[in-house]
Nucleic acid binder design. Structure first.
Ligand SMILES: [Mn+2]
Ligand SMILES: [Mn+2]
Ligand SMILES: [Mn+2]
Ligand SMILES: [Mn+2]
Lengths: 223, 223
DNA sequence: AACAAAATTTAGACAAATCTAAAAAAAGGT
DNA sequence: ACCTTTTTTTAGATTTGTCTAAATTTTGTT
């Protein structure tokens, strides 16, 4: 598999999460930041190799093999991100770009040794699960901060958007994985929320709240 | 620069070591395991980018820029090889293939952090020098075992061939970097040699002796 | 059902990297 | 100086991955 093929397979896998529907050419083109015509060309090649099911005009769906490949690439991506943070002191907003390159390195031994070096981590620096050798990964019950009841409490366990801009914003407000967050209030008009994190009260927009995952620690919380 | 371009630049650099002459199309084709016609195409592109000097039928020579690039790739290659051996318990015959992939990862920060993690090593697992950030590397006075006087002594400091076949042969006979080797005898007929390593006497062919570097520890040695 | 809009595919082009076969240039020997 | 061999370049083809523009199919709306 070429780098490009692997990226497509990974893109399709991500779009497939949360829904068993076929992925449309347009949606995939948006995901891959390319043109629909390029997508059509590529999916024909991938279908030829039995990595996905494709019927003209009907979108695509990964085959069993395709899914296995996707999980391998995702495993590598997340292990490398973990390595960069744990062993090379990268910050969580710097790792994605480099991991996009490292995920294509082919060496089963390398991946498994890396896994061992890191002590078989279950989650990456963004809280995303790391598939094991067999593609199996842990799930965690987590809820978007925007969907939390008011008042309530939770621990930050992941981000939905892991763009540097968002992650740096979180850093500036001392929001990190493992941090306890108190949900104080929600504004009816714009759904912005007031939260408490590290002893500081903070007003955050609906967009921010919609990209932060919490593990609820109590159904409700009284001040 | 594409992976292929980087590989060509690296190939030219290696052929240029030990000689200021221009590299011929045929020699480069052999090095890159490709056809002369493919080489002609590629060197035109590289000349266009000012990575090398090229005059039709006259061979090529790296520019200053080309040499800098080559040293960067070589630095990465050797640092990754060191990482694989030091941190992931790879053996010295397993690292080259993976390093051929890893050397193309683009991230200055990654390379420098890796360097720090490994404590700024001067030499890779095969005894080859690792250029620093600025392309500067140490040299060591070393001599091919085949060129050592008889009798004499030295410490194994490098290999000329680092193919798995050769390295595994050395492993089987407990020859490793840092090992002390006594040169006992040379056979006039086939230039095979008798050496002592780790208390064991060993008969080795001229071909083997021509691929092992020693740092001489004494001009002569009396039994 | 018919038409317009949107989504998708096809056709044709291009750059990168390779190949084979043929042409051209350089080198070597008498 | 001429001829032969070797080296190098050119010409033309192929694969991968992309693009634009045009054609086709599907979807949504009267
Ligand atoms: Mn990532
Ligand atoms: Mn991640
Ligand atoms: Mn190597
Ligand atoms: Mn090496």
């Amino acid at each position: 598999m070429t780098h490009s093929e692997e990226n497509y397979i990974k893109g399709i896998y991500h779009l497939s999460q949360g829904g068993k529907n076929a992925i449309s050419t347009t949606a995939l083109a948006a995901q891959m930041e390319t043109k629909p015509s390029s997508v059509t060309d590529m999916i024909k090649r991938l279908a030829e190799k039995d990595l996905l099911h494709y019927r003209k005009y009907q979108g695509v769906r990964l085959t069993e093999t395709g899914t296995r490949h996707a999980l391998k690439v995702i495993r590598k991506h997340r292990l490398w991100e973990s390595f960069l943070v744990e062993k090379l002191d990268f910050s969580w907003d710097e790792v994605h770009e480099v991991a996009e390159q490292l995920e294509h390195i082919e060496s089963e031994k390398l991946v498994d040794r890396l896994d061992a070096l890191l002590n078989y981590p279950d989650f990456d620096p963004h809280g995303d699960p790391i598939p094991d050798k067999n593609g199996v990964f842990k799930t965690r019950d987590k809820k978007l901060l925007s969907a939390m009841p008011v008042p309530s409490m939770g621990v930050c366990v992941g981000v939905r958007d892991s763009s540097p801009a968002f992650l740096k914003f979180l850093d500036r407000h001392h929001i990190a994985l493992g941090r306890e967050i108190r949900v104080l209030d929600r504004e009816a008009f714009d759904h912005s929320m007031r939260i408490e994190v590290g002893g500081q009260t903070l007003q955050i927009s609906h967009q921010i709240a919609g990209n932060l995952y919490l593990k609820p620690t109590a159904d409700s919380w009284k001040p």
